[in-house]
Amino acid sequence: METYTLIVLLLAATLRVATPLLLAALAGMFSERSGVIDLGLEGKMLGAAFAAAAVSAVTGSAWAGLAAGVLTSVALALLIGFACITHRGNQVVAAMAVNIMVAGLGPSLALAWFHLGGQTPQLDAPGQRFVEIVWPWAERARETPFPGLLYAELLSGHSLVVYLAAALVPAGAWVLYRTRFGLRLRAVGENPAAVDTAGISVNGLRYQAVLISGMLCGVAGTYLSTAASSGFVRDMTAGKGYLALAALIFGKWRPYPTLGACLLFAFTDALATRLQGVALPLVGVIPVQFILALPYVLTVLLLAGFVGKAVAPKAIGVPYAKEQ
């Protein structure tokens, strides 16, 4: 029974860790399917995390924080779009620039506005955070291990954003595969010239994709600072944007496999936390660092074609120049 409880708690932790990853990976999916490399996930999330925590701390409303987070992330996305869609700059360089700039800007503004050494104030007043939603009868269900504990820990007790992220997977799949916009989006990432010939604006579509990416990253960042923790701290994304990108590649740029990759990566993360210093039978203590490095190693193996084959959208990374 002890093992059972542990596993349920581990899975619940997996869901919480997977949420920002999933949101960011879906964001990247829209952007990359349109042909724009989305290395800026990290920076957009971090910017949103700061803005959401700062605004929530000042106004006392998590929803105002969410709005600020999404706006900030969208502004950063538009900046990247301006550089590499309008001005055909290098997408990798633009995204790295934004990532680095935001990594400095958050703590700089936090220091100037809150005087707490680069953090935002603790969000502890009611309404400042997206708190866990407890489903009906969850407390009573906890008493019966199966299926009560599953209900109480896995289904109930997450913040709104977790459920939103889960709902966005089928929604994203529907948009991508069942709508005219999705068809055009996929086409523009594979063969922009054909889309252009059909009289549809390539840059317009890419801007829409980048905008969607900005919004989803905004939600992901907001989750980090106002739901998963209570406030912004320096470098709080800690590579989650890149991990999300890895999950997107691992999921071969498709919604459901990407969900699977996010859950897998989140599970390794949750597992690493649990296994810290624990001796396992047969193998002994597994160094936490090895488990944490696993998602990156897996992604490299996948990219190398040793574990399946990831084929990127064909026009990815290439700025589109209309023929003169």
Partner: peptide, 14 residues
């Protein structure tokens, strides 16, 4: 770090 990011943006991407 902010200045560094802005330099990359201006000299590289823009």
């Amino acid at each position: 770090v902010v200045i560094q990011g802005l330099v990359i943006l201006a000299c590289g991407a823009l």
